[in-house]
Structures are given as structure tokens and as C-alpha cells.
């Protein structure tokens, strides 16, 4: 991996209005989030619903405009530069809603080629067939319609479309959460395989820690619009420092009865609060077992340092140490 990030986001914030653009109450979906992903690296962005991970993903591909902050591709601001935009493509969560039911697979996968004027006629068809083969589908599929495919196959079509413009970065928003376990593994392996072959960087938005563990090199955890912890997948998922990451880890159930039964009676209290009215101080403080007065008044900032796995950091006044995390 080279030392220069391929895609970088600096201090991104996005505010929406709940219940109408004019009279609705503003809430910050994403607040001052920075990230960097290296070529060929997978960075997972993890968190529960409403944490801002999808909004972050949509800003990275240009589907939302950030209110503050900037997005850099190889150090250059992306803004409205179409040539740079092409380098960052998205795979959507729902393989049923994200493919136009009235278009053939050929036209769906070729759309980025058409939009960016990359191939026409026979070259266009050949490129689509090559892409379909690359994602493990029969090239003959190109004349068929989305409804003729299973969920896993549709997600392969979505991945083929995202790859059509030869991007350097793939932003995948919960790409496997709508799929059955057995099929989920096919798609995860396909992404890992494509990354090895094409050297693309992947930003993988997910809520399932086990899936994240299988695919990612580094992990960033979000809670209520803020990044609370970041680091190598091993460190963040196995020995988390932020009490919220510890709670997520403790709630994740694995197919191992002895281990899963340990979670009985240990649920973290409360639910993520309303983003319209985030609590003052650390946003996790009302649910945190380690809360002190400082947490209720001052918002902790993420202090990053570089370790063997890249950037690492935690936004917490009382981070959990390794030994405690293991016994929790």
C-alpha cells in the first residue's frame, strides 16, 4: 500500500431538516467526520441505524453535497469534476430497488459507459459481457431483465455496473444485508476477489460486525453522526476501546452457543437518542456505563495516531483497556 490515500474526506458535516425543508427541525446526520482510505484497502464504516453511515457514503459518491468539509481524490478536491467522480462508484443496499426493472441487464450495466462516453456499439456489449463474467454471471444474462435473477445475482449486477467505469474506489452501502447468509458469503468473497484483482479501494458500510471482520482491513465506528473509534479491524473488533464499540461487540451474536449465551442478560440500556436533540457532551453518555460529569458536558474529540494498520483513534475520555474489553 502506498502512503498516499486514494480517497480522503476532511471534516464532513451534513444537516437535514426532519419534517420539511423549511419548517422542519434541523438535525446533523453527519458531524465533522474525516476518513482516509488507501489504494487496495477496505475501510468499513460501522454503526446502527441513524448513525449517519449512509449519508456519509452518499456524500463520498456525490449523491449528497456536504455542508462543510471536502472530499479529495488523490489529494485533489472532487467537487463537480466528472472525471474524478467517475473514480468513485457506489453499490447500493437493496438489489431490488436499485436496478431499473424495465431495462435489460446490458443497459443497466452499460449506464456508466454511456454517461461517461466510454464505449459504444460492439465495444459496449463486449465490455458488459466482460464485466458480467468478472462478477461470476453468464454473459448471456445481458439480454434479460432484473426480475429474472435472485437477490445475490442482482447484487452481482449492481457490482458489475459500479465497476463499469473502472473506478479506483467502490463505496458499498450495506451490500449484503438484504441477502441470505449463504449468498452473503458469495458476494463478500466476490468483493474480496475483485479487490485483489483490480486493486480497488472499498468503503464498506455495514452494521454486521462479523461481515465487516471478514472483509475489512480497517474499521471506523459511528454513533449519532460522529466517528467514535477507528483503527485496524483486529484492534477495533477484537479489543475495542470505545464503550460504544464494546457494546456493539457484546451484542453481536455468533453461531457458537457457549459464546452467544454469555450475552444473556447483558444488554446495553437505552436506544440511540433522537438526532434532532443529541445529548450535550459525548453523544453516547446517556447509555454509557463509564460516564462521568466530563462526558455530560464536553464532547470528546478523536485523537488519531498511526500504527501498523494505519490511522487509529478513539473519541472517549475513559477508553476501555484491552484487559477490560476481554472480560466484558
Amino acid at each position: 500500500m502506498s502512503a498516499e490515500p486514494i480517497l480522503e474526506a476532511r471534516g464532513l458535516s451534513k444537516t437535514f431538516r426532519a419534517g420539511g425543508a423549511v419548517f422542519g427541525k434541523p438535525f446533523q446526520a453527519v458531524k465533522d467526520v474525516s476518513l482516509a482510505v488507501m489504494p487496495g484497502e477496505t475501510l468499513a464504516v460501522v454503526g446502527e441505524s441513524g448513525c449517519g453511515k449512509s449519508t456519509l457514503a452518499r456524500m463520498l459518491v456525490g449523491l449528497e453535497t456536504p455542508d462543510e468539509g471536502e472530499i479529495l481524490f488523490r489529494g485533489a478536491p472532487i467537487k463537480r469534476d466528472r472525471a474524478l467522480r467517475r473514480q468513485v462508484q457506489m453499490v447500493f443496499q437493496d438489489p431490488y430497488l436499485s436496478l431499473n426493472p424495465r431495462r435489460t441487464v446490458l443497459d443497466i450495466v452499460a449506464e456508466p459507459l454511456d454517461v461517461h462516453g466510454l464505449a459504444k456499439g460492439a465495444a459496449r456489449t463486449a465490455r458488459v459481457e466482460e464485466l458480467l463474467t468478472a462478477v461470476g454471471l453468464d454473459p448471456a444474462a445481458s439480454s434479460r431483465f432484473p426480475h429474472e435473477f435472485s437477490g445475490g445475482q442482482r447484487q452481482r449486477i449492481g457490482i458489475a455496473r459500479a465497476l463499469a467505469a473502472e473506478p479506483s474506489v467502490l463505496v458499498c452501502d450495506e451490500p449484503v444485508s438484504a441477502l441470505d447468509v449463504s449468498v452473503q458469503a458469495q458476494v463478500v468473497n466476490l468483493l474480496i476477489d475483485l479487490q485483489k484483482r483490480l486493486g480497488i479501494a472499498i468503503i464498506f458500510i455495514a452494521h454486521d460486525l462479523a461481515v465487516v471482520r471478514a472483509i475489512s482491513h480497517r474499521v471506523m465506528v459511528m454513533y449519532l453522526g460522529r466517528a467514535v473509534e477507528e483503527g485496524g479491524a483486529d484492534r477495533v473488533l477484537v479489543t475495542p476501546n470505545h464503550p460504544y464499540t464494546v457494546a456493539l461487540r457484546g451484542s453481536a451474536l455468533e453461531p457458537d452457543p457457549a459464546r452467544a449465551r454469555l450475552a444473556r442478560g447483558k444488554a446495553t440500556r437505552g436506544e440511540p437518542p433522537n438526532p434532532v436533540n443529541p445529548p450535550p457532551g459525548c453523544r453516547f453518555n446517556p447509555r454509557c456505563p463509564r460516564v462521568t460529569d466530563e462526558c455530560r458536558t464536553n464532547e470528546p474529540q478523536m485523537k488519531r495516531h498511526t500504527d501498523a494498520a494505519g490511522l487509529s483513534g478513539v473519541a472517549c475520555y475513559h477508553p476501555v483497556q484491552e484487559a477490560e474489553a476481554l472480560s466484558a
Partner: peptide, 22 residues
């Protein structure tokens, strides 16, 4: 096969999907 296809947090092994679909 269903158990082998389920990812786990503690270990990073290549997932073994079930080929095809139901």
C-alpha cells in the same frame, strides 16, 4: 454449509459460501 458460510468476529477465515441458490 450454512454454518461455514456465516462470518465470525473472532476469526478471519475465508468464508465458504454455498454455491447456487435455493
Amino acid at each position: 454449509a450454512l454454518m461455514a458460510s456465516a462470518p465470525r468476529i473472532e476469526t478471519v477465515e475465508k468464508l465458504e459460501p454455498i454455491k447456487g441458490s435455493p
